[in-house]
Simulated assay, not measured.
Amino acid sequence: MSSRDALILMLPEAAEAAEAAEAPVRWMRVIDGALVQSGEGVNWLSACGIAALPDKARVLLVPPAALVTLHWIAHPDLPVRQGRAAARLTALTASLLSADQLFAATDANDDPALPHIVAVASRADMQHWLLWAQHHGLDPDIIVPAPLLLPEPESGFVRGRIADEMVLRGVDMALTADMALPALIGDAPIADIAAGVIEGRAIAALNAPPIDLRQGDFAKRVRRAVDKQALGRIILWSGLILLLCLAAVLVGIVKQHMAASRLDRESVALAQQVLPGASDAAQAQVELEGRLAARGAGGRAFTAPVAGLLAAVQDAPGVALTSLSRDPDGMIRATLAAAKAEDINMVLLAIQAAGYTITATPSQDPGGRTLADITVRS
């Protein structure tokens, strides 16, 4: 947002009656820090000859003085930030409504010797002002209490008209004219402030507001504009990173393929010492396994008969396999034990039915169980 083009709105005490003649909104159009147009009511766009405010125009809202209470609270013995927080709590405690119904904002004073100015308004009023602005197509950037548009007096009070109210500001007090009772102001001198001074302070508040009520829960939500150049750079770098990752994966695949090809060539070279006609690793493996199986060696010569034996034993719950071994020539030897010889015979028949050649030598252990020492060959 820029104050080069701005709109300042000074609300009457009853904003819902803003379009009524007795309570008009006072508005000012500011361009390059200068007042170029002003008027009353809600027809500022048509009066300025525009359809809408520029996108970067700032909007300053000045709520009614009677609905914002100002407190001057000093805590010189505390650090600035702690003093500011303590001043805010003190102002809320001194208010008639409960703290959860109120909203308090403090100034940016960094001198602990000076009092902090705390503005207190009801949350309902804050919501009402923002809804009124939204109803008229506005989202205020700044909300400044009306009395702070008056200059700070060295003594006594200064007085000026803001919107439809006559407002007084003292050294440590601000109030509307109808609240300026003799008991409050006594015989203190009152100096009238020209309208031009108030307008000038309102324009200055566009860049340096004395207090901005748009903070905390009522802070303006700023939508960050999409930086197309930054977005383009992000997309470009993301694409480059993905490309590099893909290249790294492809390089790894190529290296693995080359290593596998080298191992295949070495395997074929070794196999050709036994199988001169071998042309590739897969063919050499098949032929070598075939020769080993014919000699009773190789992986198949052990795993296949053992698998058949175990399958037959599993189907006979009364038979136990007590030993299992393999001879150098590939012969599988096992010992079966059962309470009855018929159970062992069922296992032997199942092994034969699976296509294996067996021999069996019966015996009996000291416990009376029937044993069978068997051999199994493919």
Rank of each mutant, 00 (worst) to 15 (best):
R214V: 04
Q215T: 14
Q215I: 01
G216R: 04
F218R: 01
R221W: 00
R221L: 10
V222Y: 00
A225C: 12
A225D: 08
D227N: 15
K228V: 15
A230D: 04
A230P: 04
L231G: 11
L231N: 09
R233W: 14
L236N: 10
S238A: 12
G239N: 03
L240H: 02
L240Y: 02
L240D: 01
I241E: 05
I241F: 12
L243V: 08
L243I: 09
L244I: 15
L244Y: 02
C245Q: 10
C245D: 12
L246S: 12
A247W: 07
A248Q: 15
L250T: 11
L250Q: 12
I253L: 13
I253Y: 08
K255Q: 14
K255N: 15
K255R: 13
S261E: 06
S261L: 13
R262W: 14
R262T: 12
D264C: 05
D264R: 15
D264M: 09
R265W: 09
L270M: 10
Q272M: 08
Q273Y: 05
P276I: 04
P276H: 04
G277P: 04
A281V: 07
A281N: 06
A282D: 10
Q283D: 05
A284D: 00
A284G: 04
A284K: 11
V286D: 08
G290N: 14
G290D: 05
G290E: 06
L292C: 01
A294C: 03
G299L: 13
R300S: 07
F302Q: 06
T303G: 01
A304R: 02
P305L: 05
V306K: 12
A307P: 01
A307G: 15
L309C: 05
L310Y: 04
L310N: 11
Q314D: 11
Q314G: 06
D315G: 08
D315W: 03
P317E: 13
P317H: 07
P317T: 08
G318N: 12
V319D: 01
A320T: 12
A320N: 10
A320F: 11
A320V: 07
L321H: 03
L321A: 10
S325V: 00
R326D: 00
P328D: 01
P328L: 00
M331C: 01
M331I: 03
R333C: 02
A334V: 02
T335S: 09
A337C: 04
A337K: 12
A338L: 09
A338C: 09
A341T: 13
A341K: 11
A341E: 09
E342L: 07
E342T: 11
D343F: 06
D343P: 10
I344P: 08
V347C: 08
A350E: 07
A350G: 06
I351T: 02
I351W: 00
